[in-house]
Simulated assay, not measured.
Amino acid sequence: MLGAVEVFRDLTEVKRLEEEIRRMHTLAALGQMAATVAHEVRNPLGGIAGFAALLKRDLKDNPQQRKLVEKIIEGVSSLNNIVTALLNYAKPVNRKSERINFLGLMDRIVGFFEGSLNIHSAKADKKIVLKKSYQSDCIWCRADPEQLTEVALNLLQNAVRANLFMPFFTTKQNGTGLGLATAKKIVDAYNGDISVQSTPGKGSTFSVKLPCE
């Protein structure tokens, strides 16, 4: 007796994982390339900044040309900030295991950020309100408070700007586009998860999940 058996498998999840792996390899390669370029760019930037500073000193009797040189110095400083951000992004996250009160840390971060809300509100031409809601009095976790502060501040700053985790995307004139990408990199290093849900015309909700004690 002859027969045939057909086996069907849903490869949707497999293909999604393969695509995610390819994307991660691409981003890793881009990060490495960006770091190499950043190293090569930093030395000439230092030379430009030095010569511009000397030129500014020699033009003390020519205010008009001195202002032009100041623009050069500002541009070099902006480029140097981008180079620094690229180098930092290309570095692996150095995980530190320090027992911290997560909610206490969030209170300090929110308190710090509240001081700049008026500036953000003026730029956005609308009132920005920051609200806190905790479901527990205390949550302990092991992490680097400085790294978690960077994650939280990047998310808060992004709340009045763009909503993408892809590196090098920015809507800010002087931004590097690495804020959310860096936040995701830090969260991933602690075996956490960060995601976003957006509703057109209403806003976005960011969720960060980290292992706690």
Score class of each variant (00 low, 15 high):
A53D: 08
S204D: 09
D125Y: 09
F8H: 14
G111N: 02
G201S: 06
D61N: 14
Q32N: 13
R57N: 10
E98F: 07
P200Y: 00
I82S: 13
A29D: 11
R95H: 04
K91F: 00
I73H: 06
N94T: 12
L148Q: 05
E20G: 05
Q157E: 11
F113Y: 09
G115Q: 00
S97G: 11
L87C: 10
E213P: 10
L79Y: 07
F113C: 00
F206P: 06
E40D: 10
D188Y: 09
L54A: 12
I119Y: 13
N43R: 15
G115I: 00
K15A: 11
K56R: 15
R42P: 00
G201A: 09
V83P: 07
L210N: 11
C141E: 03
E13T: 09
L156N: 02
T12V: 06
T182E: 01
A122Q: 12
G3D: 05
Q32M: 07
K184E: 02
L180V: 04
L86S: 14
A34Q: 10
T205M: 09
S97L: 08
L156H: 03
K71W: 02
D107H: 07
D137A: 14
K172Y: 04
F168R: 15
A85K: 12
D188M: 07
C212P: 01
E114D: 03
K184I: 00
V69L: 08
C141Y: 03
D144Y: 04
P92H: 00
S116M: 02
A35D: 08
A143Q: 08
G50R: 15
L68A: 14
Q135F: 12
V129L: 05
L55A: 14
E19Y: 05
E146K: 15
R99Q: 08
V37D: 05
L117V: 07
Q173R: 15
G115A: 01
V37E: 11
C138K: 15
P63L: 12
Y134C: 05
V110F: 11
I186Y: 08
C138R: 15
D107I: 01
A38K: 13
A122H: 13
A38P: 04
Q147K: 14
I48E: 03
R99Y: 01
F168P: 04
Q32I: 03
C138Q: 13
A49P: 01
E13P: 06
K131R: 14
P211N: 12
Q64Y: 11
S136L: 12
T199V: 10
